[in-house]
Design a protein around this nucleic acid. Structure first.
Length: 708
RNA sequence: GGACAUGUAGCUCAGUUGGUUAGAGCAUUCGGCUUACAUCCGAAAGGUCACAGGUUCGAAUCCUGUCAUGUCCACCA
């Protein structure tokens, strides 16, 4: 560096060039050494069509810091990037796009719809990948994966087949959550409960042989499908009524009064109408008491033929009509406003309908048990640890997993039915295999798999499993899964269960949970709130290093983090500080000797000692995954200790011939090694300085960490 | 209904096993183009450590309770 080198670090000149050097150098690829344990992170794949938002910037920053740190430590380090087909989100997204063009997916047909969407995805994916590059993500692009890659899809079928053969996947009729808008079933996790003000209607059900029993409901129209009335077996009021028969009003059907512990004595009259086809609790009760399931609402939320004279009406219309009719008969015992929680689709926001439907399920208990064990025994650790409790709590109360989705986009369920007899089916890789097995023409199941089914296999399908590839053998189990705590059940739990089931090993050693990004008013960053910070705009304005520092400073695992533009600007200044400290040292001492080749003064030794203490502290913090603290310590040290004090005090000694050389050597040593410590956090500016000063030693990317 | 997290300067956060006058950065104010950097340097101001009890020679730190904020789970006929 010379006095005339620019006074400011200009990210625009450097970033792209440096990234290309890194990538083409092969430095992102792990230096495989069978004697060393690899450090592996499989990237949580962003949606292929996503533009990166600030949440992505956070996870990319954190993972890149981990990966760069371990790479500098000399470990064979793999960060494997990917893209997700994000079944539900993508289909909804693309259908919306079609609608704007005045089309629907049915105009295209399944095949064309999927082809077009695939085309679109692959195009968009380039944008997403470019954005990862701009953030400085040091991942191995030669190993990148897409969740719909041929080999990944094969692995999905393989797993489905194995689970089916071992009795872990079954087809069954259950009450499921049905999203009318997207016309698909949802898992319990895809449903959120919202408080809604509704109406609680009390209805008199006449008892055959005299008397009546009053039940209350928020969904009077479901009474058409009632097949019992339940009371608590120890409820004194109804002691003599259990076993009697009531006549279902409007329908005239005779249904029993049953006793079941699940009934809450204190609620309402203590008697509840049971509709096994439209309520999961009622369904379970129906199973216990062998009740008939009468479906009265269909997938378009209209009353079915079983609904008698109400058939064909929309459920809401039927509700009003039924109340009117009951009222005429004097059977309404009361109506009152009632706030209750109603399940809504997490995706579309609409209320979901609970319907009886035939779906594929994963029997979860045999998978959950070992998954609980793995965490209990410490085979998998979570940071922060408190999420282990959250995990146990959910896993211990887990229910079977509905994996069918009535979507077109995604992994199609690998089940083929014999055309001539649909009760016969085979699980197969393709039509030929199925036809061979069934001995006739076959049709494939129309449904696709829950996107989290294939995502659950991600830590090993990305490495080539079920083939015993070199990568799989070497890198699996992986080291860290870094992701958001909001998907601990959706994803993390499923990866652990499926990982243990498929490979016999826990898929990773450590789960690091990042928090949610909020703005300075503590609001969640979201488009609807209008407070989005576009990471690419920030990179454009302040450089990737500044954005990265802004993302990670003050973060702790599992803790929400705050960003705003001021913060990012402040760290742009930090990048500049590094640049200028280097300029100064190099201008004053362009031919600095190695500290081992020169007699050092007392002040020099003190500076060096202090530096090695800092390097040790940083190392300790990094090993604890206390990344925010490590960043803060470094920032503090480099700027306010090294620059403000060490360099300032050294200025005099640099003017004195007796101390000039040794001081220069010491400053140079600290600068050079600080670049290594700083590199995981601010990779671009440190690399830019390194290449300007120490080019003959190769890229900073793969230097040796200056502490142990 | 249950669980968890957080509450320290205007804002974002440190504060190690309890130990002098509670620390940074950003923002603010003042003074400086001092031979790397004005994307800078120096200085100042700013705190009842959410609140109330308790343990202790000593509490931001440990215990109990309260309040506020946020998150998750369960569920409501």
């Amino acid at each position: 560096m010379k006095a005339e080198t620019p006074k400011t670090f200009d990210p625009k000149i450097w970033e792209q060039k440096i990234y290309q050097q890194w990538e083409s150098s092969g430095g992102f690829k792990p230096a495989i050494d069978k004697k060393k344990r690899p450090y592996t992170i499989i990237m949580p794949p962003p949606n292929a069509y996503d533009k990166l938002h600030i949440g992505h910037a956070l996870f990319v920053t954190l993972e890149d810091i981990m990966v760069r740190y371990h790479r500098l430590r000399g470990e064979p380090t793999l960060w494997l990037p990917g893209a997700d087909h994000a079944a539900t989100a993508s289909q909804i997204f693309y259908e919306k796009k079609l609608r704007q063009e005045g089309k629907s997916r049915h105009d295209l047909g399944r095949e064309r719809f999927n082809d077009e969407l695939m085309q679109f995805m692959l195009e968009q994916r380039n944008t997403m990948e470019d954005q990862l590059r701009r953030l400085g993500a040091s991942c191995d692009w030669t190993r990148k994966k897409f969740t719909l890659d041929e080999d990944v899809s094969q692995a999905v079928v393989y797993t489905f087949k194995k689970m089916y053969n071992e009795g872990l996947i079954y087809r069954g009729k259950r009450v499921i959550n049905w999203s009318p808008k997207s016309q698909t079933g949802l898992s319990d996790l895809e449903v959120v409960h919202k408080e809604v003000e509704g109406e609680l209607t009390s209805i008199r059900y006449p008892i055959k042989g005299g008397g009546e029993i009053v039940v209350a409901t928020t969904r009077p129209e479901t009474m058409l499908g009632d097949t019992a009335v339940a009371v608590h077996p120890r409820d004194k009021r109804y002691k003599d009524i259990i076993g009697k028969v009531v006549v279902l009003p409007l329908m005239g059907r005779e249904i029993p009064v049953i006793g079941d512990e699940a009934v809450d004595i204190k609620f309402g009259t203590g008697a509840v109408k049971i509709t096994p086809a439209h309520d999961p609790n009622d369904f379970e009760m129906g199973q216990r008491h062998n009740l008939e399931e009468v479906e009265v609402i269909d997938k378009n939320i209209k009353i079915t033929k079983a609904g008698g004279k109400y058939a064909g009406m929309k459920a809401a219309e039927a509700r009003d009509k039924i109340i009117e009719d009951l009222d005429k008969l004097g059977l309404i015992a009361g109506r009152k406003k009632f706030v209750h929680s109603v399940p809504h689709s997490e995706r579309t926001g609409e209320p979901v309908e609970q319907l009886l439907s035939e779906q594929w399920f994963v029997k979860i208990e045999p998978l959950a048990k070992p998954a609980i064990e793995a965490v209990k025994k410490g085979k998998i650790k979570m940071i922060p640890k408190r999420f282990e409790k959250v995990y146990f709590n959910w896993m211990e109360n887990i229910r079977d997993w509905n994996i069918s989705r009535q979507l077109w986009w995604g992994h199609r369920i690998p089940v083929y039915y014999l055309e001539s007899d649909r009760s016969k089916f085979a699980v197969a890789f393709d039509v030929q295999e199925a036809e061979k097995e069934l001995g006739g023409k076959v049709v494939q199941d129309e449904d696709t798999l829950d996107t989290w089914f294939s995502s659950g296999l991600w830590p090993f399908t990305t490495l080539g499993w079920p083939e015993k590839t070199e990568d799989f053998k070497y890198f699996y189990p992986t080291t860290v899964m870094e992701t958001g705590h909001e998907i601990i059940f959706f994803w993390v739990a499923r990866m652990i269960m499926l990982g243990l089931y498929c490979t016999g090993e826990a898929p990773f050693e450590l789960v690091y949970f990042n928090g949610i990004v909020r703005d300075k008013e503590n609001q969640k960053i979201s488009r609807s709130k209008g407070n989005i910070i576009d990471p690419m705009e920030m990179v454009e304005k302040y450089g990737a290093d500044a954005l990265r520092m802004g993302m990670m400073m003050g973060t702790a695992a599992g803790q929400d983090t705050h960003v705003d533009e001021d913060k990012i600007r402040a760290y742009r200044n930090f990048a500049n500080k590094i640049w200028n400290a280097a300029r100064f040292i190099n201008i004053k001492s362009p031919d600095a000797k190695d500290v081992t080749d020169i007699k050092l003064g007392a002040e020099d030794k003190k500076m060096l000692d202090e530096f090695s203490g800092v390097a040790k502290d940083i190392t300790k913090l990094m090993d604890k995954y206390d990344i925010g603290q490590a960043g803060d310590k470094l920032y503090q040290y480099f700027w306010h200790r090294f620059c403000d004090e060490c360099i300032e005090e050294a200025k005099l000694r640099l003017e004195d011939d007796k101390t000039k050389d040794s001081t220069g050597a010491a400053l140079n040593y600290i600068l050079k090694n600080s670049l290594k410590l700083l590199h995981p956090f601010v990779p671009f500016v440190t690399e830019a300085v390194w290449q300007t000063l120490y080019q003959e030693e190769g890229l900073l990317l793969t230097q040796k960490w200056p502490a142990s």
